[in-house]
Design a protein around this nucleic acid. Structure first.
Lengths: 204, 204
DNA sequence: TAAAAACTGAACCGCTTGGTTTAGTTTTGC
DNA sequence: GCAAAACTAAACCAAGCGGTTCAGTTTTTA
């Protein structure tokens, strides 16, 4: 009858609903997900859901927002050490993140709904691609300061580095297609680092 | 009463249905699109749709397939001339294709449905990303033969070249977010070509 | 011109959906 | 220990969906 307006105190039920909704949405997609399904999975009555969230849209949005806030993909990367080693570490980390089933599911969802729910697209972009790029740009700027790289603009370089990682391997995985023979995470990683080093390495 | 099994003769109604379905699907997404809506837009009765297509799924599939078959993105590219000019031409062409509203809408759709409709994902991949990559790889192989590039594997290089183009600009456009200041198609194009030339150019 | 095929439009079916309500039960806070 | 708040289960609603049917009209074809 009355909504728990109580700030965002992590009510147990509320969390259960969000957890269940996350699973259902990421699993079957936005449109195919039903509120009854979410309620069942959460072990909660449908009325309770509507006591916490005003609509399916809003629940969906809350799910994505929460997942976004939680992502701390690149905290604590040490930019010390050999350039190649640093870049390889970053690349491998980003690759495993990009290729993780949850990240892919989320990407599929957000991309599909982005035009219908611009706020969501923004939230996703800011806490996903933009945040990652910022971290990588910072690292590359560091390397440039140490003279290990020669960069006009670390942001552009970071952008290009990421692009070199999101290649065919990513596309195939995203689409659920089998990988080609010899198409490996490490292969792509090494290839990208090679290109970056040849393009921006100090040895000229 | 009887279905026009007549091969794939381009019946006028059939085309009208496909056209309308394409607009509707690409516009509102698969789930949100209704057969009544398609019928209305096609100026056709719903029964006629079901005389030509067995289900919503199949209609959707037919729409995507048709769009895929039609794409002849890179026919007639001359790999003669200055390396930089050739690469820039290719890049600009690919960028405009990638950023076109229809291509983006299609990408959103297919990515969203890929897990539910694997055949569709495959068809899209083969006639889209894979076909493009093949064309670009061929061009790069040409350039390598002429000694303008030094490549281990033109396929890998093509993959990386494409990756360098599908960067932040693409992501933002895909998500419907406004572009950053100074974020232009030409900027990305030039940047990608620069990297490729520095990484694979002959002057060492 | 006449039979066959394609098409219409609207009614219709069964089902699911998002969302609400109600009446009653449990949990919580003080 | 009690009142307020949270929750439940189930019924319920209106709407929209994919898909079918059908009686009647138009178009094709030869």
């Amino acid at each position: 009858m009355s909504k728990p307006l109580s700030g965002r105190k992590p009510s147990a039920k509320r969390e259960a609903i969000l957890d269940a909704a996350q699973v259902v949405f990421l699993d079957v997609g936005y449109a195919a997900a039903s509120m009854d399904g979410v309620a069942a999975r959460a072990g909660v009555s449908k009325a309770t859901i509507y006591a916490h969230f005003t609509s399916k849209d809003q629940l969906f949005s809350a799910v994505i927002q929460r997942r976004c806030e939680r992502s701390e993909a690149f905290q604590s990367i040490d930019s010390q050490g050999d350039v190649r080693a640093v870049l390889t570490g970053v690349a491998r980390r980003l690759m495993t993140l990009l290729l993780s089933p949850e990240a892919l599911a989320m990407y599929r969802l957000v991309v599909a709904e982005s035009l219908r729910q611009p706020d969501l697209a923004r939230a996703f972009y800011d806490s996903g691609p933009a945040a990652g790029k910022a971290q990588i740009a910072a690292i590359m700027a560091d390397l440039a300061d140490r003279g290990e790289l020669v960069l006009d603009d670390p942001w552009v370089a970071a952008d290009q580095f990421i692009g070199l990682l999101r290649t065919d391997l990513f596309m195939r995985t995203l689409l659920g297609l089998p990988l080609r023979d010899g198409q490996t995470l490490d292969g792509v990683t090494v290839g990208a680092v090679d290109v970056i080093l040849r393009a921006f390495g100090p040895k000229r």
